[in-house]
Nucleic acid binder design. Structure first.
Lengths: 292, 292
DNA sequence: CGATTCAACAAGCTGAGCTTATAGTCATGC
DNA sequence: GCATGACTATAAGCTCAGCTTGTTGAATCG
């Protein structure tokens, strides 16, 4: 338990600088009497005199003990001021925000969010973590993007429905929707069976459709590249695609019946106060996906 | 003017460590209610929530703002503790003491004083300043030894009467006192005409005695060496001598009439609180000279 | 020797901050 | 599903730290 009082130290400093109790009182907005009592209280708490009072119209002078207390006290005051400063900077958006993400978000949503966040808060320290996992957790993260709802003590918003489309070489299918059954025993390129891909393949199975998956890669562009190369076709969420409509080789089709879209959530720990940065990042993310 | 309160920061720390307001209260010797109110006051002063209270029997958790305040607050508390520590050490005799001295004191009195002071206060930082000057000043010094009283705003005690004796080669004078008139036109070695030497030579002049000063040196041992070498005789204060009674070459005599002894004072700035070190040094100096 | 310029002190008042007591909230266990 | 236990918040009351005003006392200076 500290026995010192920051205001006493501030008063000590003011008196040391000004030379008299009265001028220090003016500077601090107190009366002379208050300063006298404060210095008295400080002297009681340190157990010794900190100023010699010569009496009459002469300024007071620090005792050796006073020098010791003042020298250290200024350090204390500086740290206290630094604390208040840090609080202000924190409220102005300085600080760290850790965001968990995955490929589609990294490529489509986050660049805009990060850019706007840095525009607003140049001192922001944004860290991104991209882990492909089936066991998503907000532990150690301020925000987490994930393709599916999370369980546990999290708050989350669905920010996007990401519909699946068939990607194939031009001519492979006629224009218009591709029937799901057309995938049966078709050569396919696909992501690894994690995240929403698990659900997709379960839908295939329940429909009695058994594609031949000839290649799996976690790299979404790799999937498209291999479709382009003719390894097979793919069923991918729109967001993962980087296929222009006038692509020479590839085209996209709807699937019939359509798969339930992949749901993309933004989650954070429930009932926890968020930093200004995290709060703003959520808003920016919602705003960004609304423009897709 | 600081808006933070050290006790609030200490409470913040205790709650962060203990996890609940109640346990923090136990540790700090408060009631749970007091801790609740203190954290409330802290939150008001920083303008934001520092703990998330999940409600029920679950521990509270720091918010991002709380982390900022705690991290900085611990620095503040550490400095405050360092201040209190420094005060204790100061009272235990740690610190600096600057002592002005001159040859006789440096050789005869100070070694004992310094030794005892360091024995009592191993952390003492003793600095000695030996300036031969006619304008002694306690400015910048805690204590000053000087051969004569000081003027100005000083407190001083006469610690020693240092009688003058004639130093000459054996056989130069018969045993017993040497008459002052014997110095008339005698070859003499002497210190420079500063400090008490001025008074001595004024006494010579008033008595109509005009010695021939063949060599002056500020080095007291140099004076004696030259007397030993036969350059002349000398009149020196006892304390400056390092002549054993059974010296082969030299012997000492009283002067008749005797010169008023050189007065050695210990002075410090008047009406100023002294450090424990300086206070003790004065006591030790008085004690030491009493044993000469 | 009075005017001036200081700090200390007495007295009175207000509010910060403590305690006690109680209410509200949430998980857990039978 | 309800009682229990482990939490925090809050109301009420009280005390004292600490402020102001007004005055005293000390020391310098013209």
């Amino acid at each position: 338990m500290p026995v010192l009082d920051l205001r006493h130290l501030a008063t000590l400093d003011a008196v040391a600088v000004e030379g008299t109790f009265g001028r220090a009182a003016d500077r601090l907005g107190y009366t002379q009497s208050a300063v006298s009592q404060q210095i008295g209280a400080l002297e009681k708490s340190v157990g010794g005199v900190v100023f010699d009072r010569p009496g009459g119209p002469r300024p007071v002078r620090l005792t050796p003990l006073g020098e010791v207390v003042l020298a250290h006290g200024r350090e204390v005051l500086a740290r206290a001021a630094a604390t208040e400063d840090a609080v202000e900077r924190f409220k102005a958006g300085e600080g760290r925000v850790d965001i968990g993400t995955f490929q589609s978000i990294t490529n489509v949503v986050l660049p805009t969010v990060v850019r706007r966040l840095l525009d607003e808060f140049p001192a922001a320290d944004i860290r991104l973590f991209e882990e492909e996992t089936d066991r998503p957790s907000t532990d150690g993260l301020d925000l987490l993007f994930f393709d599916g709802p999370l369980t546990g003590e999290v708050e989350q918003v669905k920010i996007l429905d990401d519909p699946y489309v068939v990607v194939a070489r031009r001519g492979r299918f006629a224009d218009g929707p591709v029937p799901l059954t057309a995938l049966h025993e078709a050569a396919m390129v696909a992501p690894p069976p994690i995240c929403d891909q698990v659900r997709v393949e379960r839908v295939y199975a329940e429909a009695g459709v058994a594609p031949l998956i000839v290649f799996r890669t976690a790299d979404n562009r790799g999937v498209i590249s291999m479709v382009r190369a003719g390894m097979g076709l793919a069923v991918m969420p729109m967001l993962t695609l980087d296929v222009p409509p006038d692509d020479d080789v590839l085209c996209t089709h709807e699937l019939a019946p359509a798969l339930t879209p992949r749901e993309i959530y933004l989650a954070w720990q429930a009932n926890r106060t968020l930093s200004p940065l995290a709060t703003r990042a959520i808003e920016l993310a919602l705003h960004t996906v609304r423009q897709l």
